[in-house]
Structure formats: structure tokens, C-alpha cells
């Protein structure tokens, strides 16, 4: 399956991935509007962690046996066995945060506005994940995982 892989040796902590993730999941899809009007409502689904010079971005890893899917009591989280993609249906999510409780990378955030979980959806709507497309140093890349 395709996974977004973070290369920490090239992550430079610019955090543009967070910026573009937020925009990609905004209503307006416009940088300035998203930040001016929707910041606070929506959260980026990717987080850059930094310790000294080292940093890297974390988002949903689309685990092979996703703990979040097992823990999800509504069935909102689902792993597509064909693509390996872990999807989240906000319509079915009630914001119980069981997924937040079990995600080992801490990649599921609480959408403050909708009171539902927010996680990386690989930007399937647009084709290329915004974080990957906009990472200036290719520290985020899509790699085909043959497992």
C-alpha cells in the first residue's frame, strides 16, 4: 500500500505540512481564508515534532492492524483491505476519543468544531496529500509498501 513516510533527516521544522494540511481540510481551501476564518475550528491532521535539531512530521500511519479501527465503537474508522487505507467517516463519529486513546503515533486529533476525530485522509479528494505536495524538502514522500 502507499504510505506517507517522514524522513526525519530532511525535516527542517518549517511546518508547512501543517499549514497546507489545514488548508486542504478547510472549507475555503484558501490559505489566507482558512487561517483567518477557520483556524481554531479545524486542526491540521499532521504534527511536526521537534527535539533540538531533529524534527519530523507525524500523521496517520495507516497501520496494518489499526488499533483505532479496533477501538472505534461506531464503525466510523475503517481499514480498506484492498488499499490498506484507514478511513474515517465523520458522519458516524460521535467523538468518544477511543481512537485518540489507542493511536500509538498520536496522529488522531480532536476536531474542535465538529467534535469528531480528525485524521489524515491522504487527501484522496485531490489525489496527492497536501503535506507531501508542499513539503519543500521532500521530507515527506509517498512510498509503496509491498507488505
Amino acid at each position: 500500500m502507499k504510505r506517507i513516510v517522514a524522513k526525519e533527516e530532511y525535516c527542517m521544522n518549517c511546518r508547512l505540512c501543517e499549514v497546507y494540511c489545514l488548508v486542504s481540510h478547510s472549507r475555503s481551501k484558501d490559505l489566507i481564508k482558512a487561517f483567518r476564518q477557520e483556524r481554531g475550528e479545524i486542526v491540521p491532521r499532521i504534527t511536526v515534532e521537534r527535539l533540538g535539531p531533529v524534527s519530523f512530521a507525524v500523521q496517520c500511519r495507516h497501520c496494518d492492524e489499526p488499533a483505532c479501527v479496533e477501538a472505534c465503537m461506531t464503525g466510523a474508522l475503517h481499514r480498506d483491505p484492498a488499499t490498506g487505507e484507514v478511513t474515517h467517516d465523520p458522519q458516524r463519529c460521535v467523538g468518544c476519543w477511543m481512537c485518540v486513546m489507542v493511536c500509538p503515533t498520536g496522529a488522531i486529533r480532536r476536531d474542535r468544531n465538529g467534535h469528531v476525530a480528525a485524521k489524515c485522509d491522504l487527501c484522496l479528494e485531490t489525489g496527492t496529500p497536501a503535506c507531501v505536495a508542499n513539503c519543500p524538502n521532500e521530507a515527506l514522500v509517498i512510498e509503496e509498501d509491498n507488505d
Binding site: K7, E9, Y10, C11, M12, N13, G52, P53, N137, E138, A139
Partner: peptide, 12 residues
């Protein structure tokens, strides 16, 4: 500076 050198990804 290790904080700066990583800005150049040698693949790029």
C-alpha cells in the same frame, strides 16, 4: 549547523 544542514536533501 545540524539544524540547517538538513534543509538540503541530497536527493533533491
Amino acid at each position: 549547523d545540524p539544524y540547517l544542514t538538513r534543509r538540503l536533501n541530497p536527493e533533491i
